[in-house]
Write a protein that binds this DNA or RNA. Sequence first.
DNA 1: CCCTCAACTGATGTATACAACATTAGGCGA
DNA 2: TCGCCTAATGTTGTATACATCAGTTGAGGG
Lengths: 230, 230
Amino acid sequence: MADTTETEPMDMMPEPLRARERAERIHADIRSRICMLDYPPGMKLSETALAAELGISRTPIRRVLARLEDEGLVTSVHGVGTMVTNVDYSEMSQVYRLRKELVLLQTVLDPVHPDATFLQRFRALYARSEALKAAPSARDFSLLDQDTFLTLLDLTANAPLRTMAERLYFRTARIWLQQVTGSQIDLMQEIDIYARELQDLLGALELGDLDAVGHIRRGHISMSFARMRV
Amino acid sequence: MADTTETEPMDMMPEPLRARERAERIHADIRSRICMLDYPPGMKLSETALAAELGISRTPIRRVLARLEDEGLVTSVHGVGTMVTNVDYSEMSQVYRLRKELVLLQTVLDPVHPDATFLQRFRALYARSEALKAAPSARDFSLLDQDTFLTLLDLTANAPLRTMAERLYFRTARIWLQQVTGSQIDLMQEIDIYARELQDLLGALELGDLDAVGHIRRGHISMSFARMRV
DNA sequence: CCCTCAACTGATGTATACAACATTAGGCGA
DNA sequence: TCGCCTAATGTTGTATACATCAGTTGAGGG
């Protein structure tokens, strides 16, 4: 006994999924860069370059890119390359119509009523939206919207619904940023509207009225898409 | 000119996606075998064995298995193997609840009104259900249900909704077959009910009443899950 | 007889060389 | 000068050897 082996003593949850966790991080990282337009539509994502950047081989990269292709964020063509997909209006319109319906289901199917911790988290999000008024930033706005979405996702315990809502969100996350950088919508106005929306949601959450939360979000999603000129 | 090269003359759509098409077929094939219980829950799917069986290497097999894992049909563990997932009741319950809602959306979001060709296809499905009464077969029943689902999927043009509905369907396609092979539900009774359901749907389709189609299907899905004793 | 441990086996995960493919630049001839 | 053909280049897709990991089995010692 008393060996000097490097293994953990016992049941320490020694992360038996190192590889998988790494793949998950890479996936979320590339997805974030695409949604933040660091990788703009049409950009070629070279497997070799990504592998070199991350210090690994092409094999795990290819797995991540295949998943991103399944999610509709990139498209690979043999002999040509892997390119970030363009945002097609009619396609985005379909996704938005579906998201409007799914957001209602998120407060109907296996709803999780918000506790004090949740309300605390949401108030922090609202504070960030108010802070954005003083220091407007399209990028910070997008990050706030992403965090808000992920937070509100905890209101449902329906696993497949969570998965699908998340996929659809990241499918459309780019277009708002694309619009505001093209000056087709006004950043300050969007921030003001967003802060008010979070205030609305906070009121409904404090009342524990999840049905109201769903319908308020539905309206926000609908108007957000309507404000875009595509 | 008049070269004897093997290339097609021009714009003949020379299938530039041979590899992709093959992967698609393999994916649908393995998925079918899992849903038909040819690969029962818990069975180990060896990458090496599958590769040898198909006469290719592990690489494209791994891509297919990764997608199947993302769809929740298999699960891979490093050093152990790739196993067909079990059907968990609470999980299936969540999927069924979501499917009940999505089936309504399928006739509301971007509905496609059935034409004569569609009605013809659906009448053929109904004929198959009547034929099953004379020659009951759980496997043929499952195949009919699968074809019916895919046919009715054409009633919506919303691409992301189609994708998600399909994923959820194949997620739950196994449990009926599992129940009927375990004699926990009566095959003849199920066939009778199914034939009547198709008749109901045919009536609504002939009237062009898509709203009725959605609600009829919702009821059928709900009752189908209720009849199961899990 | 039982417990321990170490080697063995077979599985998935990774790295790398090669094949298939599409694009592009440049040379060659009409 | 124009057009076509060819070679070169860079990409994704595939095959394969190797690394890593988990379960198993069996020998050895108490």
